[in-house]
């Protein structure tokens, strides 16, 4: 129910992007906005007059019920996994796991924050259950071999640190740099390939490939 989803969402942090528009919205309004976007405004850029708007309404109306169910299922999955991971992470207090738990908390905070349902494109939200499943698996594996987790962190840092610096500066300025967003989702895939190979990546990914893309994008 919405009440449960609200509870799961209650501890999500503030958005990283300065002056993010949806930061203080209630979850119900975020969900309604997402349903409206999916049902009526997929081609929002092309709606420039009343005729186009009426056409969008006519096309979207029959989809409304199915879209609302699709949105509800996805968001329930995301917030359910989110809460379980957040709870487990906060229970891990071993000092020698700190590098791993801080890395995971950082990842989680960048994925789920107030307003993320509007800030993150739908195409990406659809991948969230996979990102979160990989994170949960990593959490399970951590006690078995914390040294291995830390080795993967060092591997990840070869691309993540440069990206994070640039991304944080952009967020502080309130700017979304599409190139940094593209790298960001590649880093999410890299995390899967390093920490939870059981979960399949959406695209082939490696440190080398990300560096190559970084250069191609002129970053």
């Amino acid at each position: 129910t919405l009440k449960m989803l609200r509870l799961q969402y209650a501890k999500a942090p503030s958005p990283p992007l300065k002056n993010a528009p949806a930061a203080h919205r209630d979850l119900e309004d975020e969900l309604i906005a997402l349903v409206i976007d999916r049902a009526f405004l997929d081609e929002a850029d092309e709606i420039r007059d009343e005729m186009a708007f009426d056409a969008a309404l006519r096309a979207g109306r029959p989809r409304l019920h199915a879209v609302s169910q699709e949105v509800h299922e996805l968001v329930s999955n995301i917030l359910g996994q989110y809460q379980a991971i957040r709870k487990r992470l906060s229970g891990l207090t071993q000092i020698n796991w700190l590098a791993s738990t801080q890395d995971m908390q950082g990842q989680l905070d960048r994925l789920v924050f107030r307003g993320f349902l509007q800030a993150v494109p739908w195409e990406r939200l659809r991948h969230y259950p996979r990102y979160l499943r990989a994170l949960a698996l990593r959490l399970e594996k951590l006690p078995l071999d914390p040294g291995r987790d830390q080795r993967w962190i060092r591997e990840l840092q070869q691309v993540q640190e440069a990206w994070r610096e640039r991304w944080q500066v952009a967020c502080e300025k309130g700017v979304v740099d599409e190139r940094l967003e593209e790298i960001r989702w590649l880093i999410e895939e890299l995390r899967i390939s390093l920490f939870a190979q059981e979960v399949k990546t959406a695209v082939p990914v490696s440190v080398k490939r990300i560096r190559k893309r970084w250069n191609e994008l002129g970053l």
Partner: peptide, 27 residues
């Protein structure tokens, strides 16, 4: 642009949006 269009949709179909909100509240 998108936020403006969303507001227009909300105004254009109040009954459907009310129904959506009602369904969200249901267990």
């Amino acid at each position: 642009h998108r936020a403006g269009l969303r507001r227009l949709v909300l105004l254009a179909m109040p009954a459907e949006i009310r129904e959506l909100r009602r369904r969200l509240q249901q267990p």
